[in-house]
Every structure is written in structure tokens, then in C-alpha cells.
């Protein structure tokens, strides 16, 4: 169960958590040092130079000192640039998932979380994950902005309507942890909470195996791909000549009409399905119709999963 005793720091349950906490401790140290410095100086001066004390020397009061000013500009600057570099390095690794992370597709809506595991298993408001496995969350919202927040993992990412966002984590402890929506999303914002349950990998496999057979997102995407007749132009062998090949597309650099280039990520695929004319690949005509309104967010994720699964021939 979730540990609900009184504590001053949240549990550390991800590979990232100790790193963030270390920076936090350092910042606490810096803050404490300067707070104590200022407080002690104020109290010391207040006592020593109180009005009633006539014996203290008040002659030759300095009005300013350029040297002092430079010192107390440069020292905080050095401190803060160090903190900046430290924080930025961590941030970088925080939002760049390692290759081979297990992908969990997430759709948020007022006021629930819907998760789908790679084998197609779905769950609501509770997320089971295996220990020691990097997990990449691919998230989208059906309505307003939400934010996925797992304090024990020190991870948070806004979930936007209209475009995918992602974050990743790797759990280091089994147990139950809070999952919050951190971005205000309306009446029941504070009830849009859930649990992350970290399990031993073997246990996780057992848990996944339970229940009936499911259609994986890739299989569902392939089915949709055929049902929506995408396949008439986007042939598996890519040989119609009317459209650029989809195989191995994800993550590749694409040259667009007009000379710009773009990395084909999930958001580019999503835009190309909904607004095909927006970014046309160089050498092709904007022939594709828009599928806006014909596919919902979950189907879009499935289609993109399928396209992602198409390895380079």
C-alpha cells in the first residue's frame, strides 16, 4: 500500500530520484547558507548599531564599495550558473528516453487516465510497470491540458490536447506510488489521481498474461490501416509512386516541399494524418484527404504504432 506516514521527503523510487534529490540538497545548502548569512548579519548589526548604543564607532561610514558590489554579483552568478548546468543536464536526460524503452500509450481526459501496455492490455487510473525497465510514456489528452505526475519518480509532464508529449522513468523499488494530475483541469482535478504499481518483472509478466487475449496496438493499427483504405496508396512495398514510403519513417529526417526539413516524429505523423497538406514531402503532391474527425485519439495512437512498427525494408 501507499506509505502514508509523516515524512519530509518523498520516497525515492526511480533512477532519477536520487539525482534530483542530490541537487535539491545542494540547493537547500545554498539557500540555508545565504538565509543564515543575511539573518545573522541583520541581527548582529541590529544589536550592535541599535540607536541606544552610543559607545559603538560610527565614524567613516562607507557609502558604497565597487569591490563589494562586484563580489556579491560574481559569487552568486558563479553559484547560479553551476546550478543551472547541473539542473539542465538532469533535465536533458529526464526528457530523452533511452533506446529500447517500453512504450505505454496514455490518453488523459476529464478526469481519468487510460493506459495501454505494449501487448494491448488496458487499464484505467492504475498503472502496473515492471521494476528496472525504462518506461516511455506517450501521452495525449482528449480535452484540456493535464499533467502526469509521479512524485516518487520525480517525473512530471504536461499532457496536451492536439499533440503528443512524452517522458520516461525507470522504477527502482517495488510498491505502490501516487500518480497525480498536476495541471488544473476542472471540477474534479483533485480526483484525477491514480496509482503506479511497480512489480518484479516476472510478476508483471504474470499480471499481463492474465485475462483474455488482446489486440496489440500495432495489430489494431494495421487493422485500421486496412479498414480506412490507407493501404490503397500506402502499399507495403511502397511502390505506388503517389506517396512517400512509410517503412522506417519514424525518426528519420524528411525533406519537405519548400526546402525545410523535419524529423518525422509521432507529432509529425499525427499532423500528416489529420492535416496532410501542412507538411508535404518534397516531390509529392498533396493528394491525401484529411482524416480529421474519422479517427479518435486512441485509434490515432494505434495507427502511429503500426507505422512505427514498419521496419525499413
Amino acid at each position: 500500500m501507499i506509505d502514508d506516514g509523516f515524512r519530509l521527503l518523498p520516497e525515492q523510487a526511480s533512477t532519477l530520484a536520487p539525482h534530483v534529490d542530490l541537487l535539491y540538497y545542494f540547493l537547500l545548502g545554498v539557500a540555508l547558507f545565504f538565509t543564515v548569512l543575511i539573518t545573522v548579519l541583520i541581527i548582529y548589526f541590529s544589536i550592535k548599531y541599535r540607536r541606544g548604543n552610543t559607545r559603538v564607532d560610527r565614524s567613516s561610514r562607507p557609502g558604497h564599495s565597487t569591490l563589494l558590489e562586484i563580489i556579491w554579483m560574481v559569487v552568486p552568478l558563479i553559484f547560479s550558473m553551476g546550478i543551472f548546468g547541473w539542473g539542465a543536464t538532469l533535465y536533458f536526460s529526464e526528457y530523452r528516453p533511452p533506446a529500447g524503452a517500453m512504450e505505454i500509450r496514455t490518453v488523459a481526459k476529464q478526469w481519468m487516465w487510460k493506459f495501454q501496455h505494449p501487448n494491448g492490455h488496458r487499464e484505467i487510473n492504475t498503472l502496473h510497470i515492471p521494476l528496472g525497465q525504462p518506461i516511455k510514456m506517450i501521452m495525449i489528452s482528449e480535452d484540456v491540458i493535464h499533467s502526469l505526475y509521479v512524485p516518487a519518480f520525480r517525473v512530471k509532464r504536461d499532457v496536451l490536447p492536439g499533440s503528443y508529449s512524452s517522458c520516461w522513468f525507470e522504477a527502482t523499488r517495488t510498491g505502490d506510488f501516487h500518480l497525480f494530475c498536476a495541471e488544473y483541469c476542472g471540477t474534479n482535478h483533485s480526483r484525477m489521481i491514480g496509482r503506479v504499481i511497480v512489480m518484479e518483472p516476472a510478476e508483471y509478466e504474470d499480471w499481463l498474461g492474465g485475462g483474455s487475449a488482446k489486440e496489440t496496438p500495432v495489430a489494431a493499427g494495421q487493422r485500421l490501416f486496412e479498414e480506412l483504405r490507407c493501404v490503397t496508396c500506402h502499399r507495403p512495398d511502397g511502390a505506388t509512386g503517389r506517396c512517400p514510403p512509410l517503412a522506417g519513417l519514424l525518426g528519420r529526417e524528411v525533406k519537405l516541399t519548400g526546402g525545410a526539413t523535419i524529423i518525422a516524429d509521432e507529432n509529425y505523423l499525427r499532423e500528416s494524418i489529420l492535416r496532410p497538406a501542412a507538411k508535404v514531402v518534397e516531390g509529392f503532391q498533396p493528394l491525401m484527404p484529411s482524416y480529421d474527425g474519422q479517427v479518435d485519439e486512441e485509434q490515432l495512437i494505434q495507427l502511429i504504432s503500426y507505422i512505427k512498427s514498419l521496419a525499413k525494408p
Binding site: 534530483v20 541537487l23 540547493l27 546550478i83 539542473g87 498536476a182 488544473y184
Partner: peptide
Amino acid sequence: FVAALAVDVHVHD
């Protein structure tokens, strides 16, 4: 604290 990117990710909102 909140200007430090990694810490802000945790304490944001």
C-alpha cells in the same frame, strides 16, 4: 530551486 530545470520538473504546479 524552481529555476533549476530538473528540480522544477518535480515541484512544478
